[in-house]
Nucleic acid binder design. Structure first.
Lengths: 340, 340
DNA sequence: ATGAAAGCGCTAACAT
DNA sequence: ATGTTAGCGCTTTCAT
């Protein structure tokens, strides 16, 4: 097989099959009536030539692009792959295709990625978070494209939103911790300016503790590096500094897992001496010596619902549609929160 | 701000700024000479209107698309995010943008994804593995687009390839294990029909053992579920079945980590009683009680090199370029392979 | 059931 | 430094 230089066009198929370009186009899109014989001729020709239609030309002519832009901060941290799975599942039958853009939590990059995406005129945009730069918001508003902001619902959407309340999640966890009788509570998480959702959980957490007259005893924040290793080190250091701690709330499961491993090594009894909880309910922590308490962040459902909204806005689904969808995360108690 | 219905066109900007469409186009692309004053007028107009160019039209007219298709089996398993990081880094200064397609290790899906991608006429294709279906190979050959197959170099490339020899990786690990004096060696990994690279490592491993007259004592394969949990369970069960094992080679770090945690719980001395090794060198395993022996799969470098080849083929880089790049993975001995 | 003509919104190539 | 013209490869619309 030799590599061709110039891509084939409809015209090539038309000539090879002796049928007009228009009819070839109809066959390839299953649109309009075409006789079985011409249909066969055309399909033969396309197959033997190895023709691949040019979607750029098609999109320009039809003013429709079967792409859904998905703009997320990162792919590596186990939360977005699941969101993507939900999106893919919902889009699978609609003919729409997700295209991912990564922002690395940088507003500047987000603007660029968004601009780039919008310039392809996608059928919809799914974007993580409610905190976009002014410029980004304006772009989204002006685009005329359905926009679904995901993960978070503590704020006002540009168009539609699907997510959980991270403030409420923080509060709920605080309440569960206090109810279990813990008093000396520590917090450990990512440096927050970057991560609005972690910040909101933290705020809700603090607030719910305050309501019952409890203050956080100690806290520590990190950025970068292996979350597991950080969780280990930081748990060690926070306990050295504040040995009275009887609970640590981690802003994600991975540092929580690191903390768990450290305590396990030290033969500290969990949860009798110290209780632990994380956030996200990632599958990865399933193999730890104890099941870490956590809260399901409903990532799959969020992706699915968001994609359904996009599909529905494009007339590709007739599911009942809400523009604001709040999902309710449940606490998974595991082995590290409830004292017998 | 109200949401607009019809997207703006160059014509709108042209009218708003009193400059021809062509000049507006030149300003927006920094192409050709434009006086500072008209330039300012145009930029003012675009900004105040919130104009976003239509890349579909641009691509059709210029016959150039600044997209690089990246086709990979999965995003969730920690190996591809790093490849993506390498790709992004190399592409950053070139004006090219990666677009990801996921195949879930299914050849059928790979064909579909590839067809979809090719129909957008990207500037290059980076695709994982050397084993594509015949149909996929034909499409790639006919596309006239630079194709870089990545991860693996044990086979013949369609066009270019960047990766490591997984057979050699398996051999090297076998040699290191034997050299450390282990004799009763087990293997544990994913079910292989899916994963050619794991299969090749396994083959190389077996072969190198055979060369020194050693046969694998036991093995176990899995698919699906939490790799950490599987590693735990399977390590328990394989040791129950074959208690004489003194080494287990895992096909990836995550199940290796699970095995490590199980042995650690059982207070089995590592590596005195049992040695362990994984594959990939993922950051995640950095926080375990012991550092698991592993082998760097050079993921970042692979992504970077592959993207550089694409850039170079498009005349966007003048780096010296090889069509076949073999990287050499090194063993990271950690704490679980070398006996004192 | 099939075909012909007219664009979609840009940019290449050639003026000026 | 700026403008004009002619497409890029399809699909829409209107004929037949």
């Amino acid at each position: 097989m030799t590599r061709r230089k110039q891509p084939l066009t409809l015209r090539d198929v038309s000539e090879a099959s002796g049928v007009s370009e228009m009819t070839v186009s109809r066959v390839l899109r299953n649109k309009g009536d075409v006789s079985a014989t011409t249909r066969a001729k055309v399909l033969d020709a396309t197959k033997s030539l190895g023709y691949v239609p040019n979607k750029i030309a098609g999109a320009l002519a039809s003013q429709r692009v079967n792409l859904v832009a998905v703009v997320i901060p990162s792919m590596s941290n186990m939360v977005f792959p699941e969101v993507m799975t939900g999106i893919s599942e919902a889009l699978d039958e609609t003919g729409l295709q997700p295209v991912v853009g990564i922002t690395n939590y940088l507003p500047d990059r987000e603007e660029k990625v968004l601009y780039e995406m919008l310039s392809w005129r996608p059928s919809g945009i799914i974007i993580a978070g409610l905190e976009q730069s002014d410029a980004s918001r304006v772009m989204l508003e002006n685009s005329g494209i359905p926009v679904v902001q995901i993960m978070d619902i503590d704020g006002d959407p540009i168009d539609a939103m699907v997510g959980i309340s991270h403030r409420r999640a923080g509060r709920k966890m605080a309440e569960a911790i206090l109810k279990s009788g813990y008093q000396n509570i520590g917090f450990m998480g990512t440096q927050m300016p970057l991560d609005h959702r972690a910040r909101k959980r933290f705020e809700g957490f603090i607030q719910a503790l305050a309501k019952q007259g409890v203050e956080i005893m100690d806290s520590e924040f990190y950025s970068g590096g292996s979350a597991l290793a950080k969780g280990r080190q930081m748990t060690k250091s926070i306990l050295k500094r504040s040995p009275e701690l009887d609970f640590i709330y981690y802003s994600n499961d991975m540092i929580g897992a690191g903390g768990l491993l450290h305590l396990w090594d030290q033969d500290i009894e969990i949860p009798r001496q110290i209780g632990l909880a994380g956030f996200n309910k990632v599958e990865l922590i399933d193999g730890l010596p104890l099941q870490l308490a956590t809260m399901d962040s409903c990532r799959f459902e969020i992706g699915k619902k968001a994609a359904q909204i996009i599909a529905s806005r494009n007339g590709l689904s007739d599911l009942p549609l809400e523009n604001i969808v709040e999902l309710s995360p449940k606490i998974a108690f595991g082995d590290t929160l409830l004292r017998k």
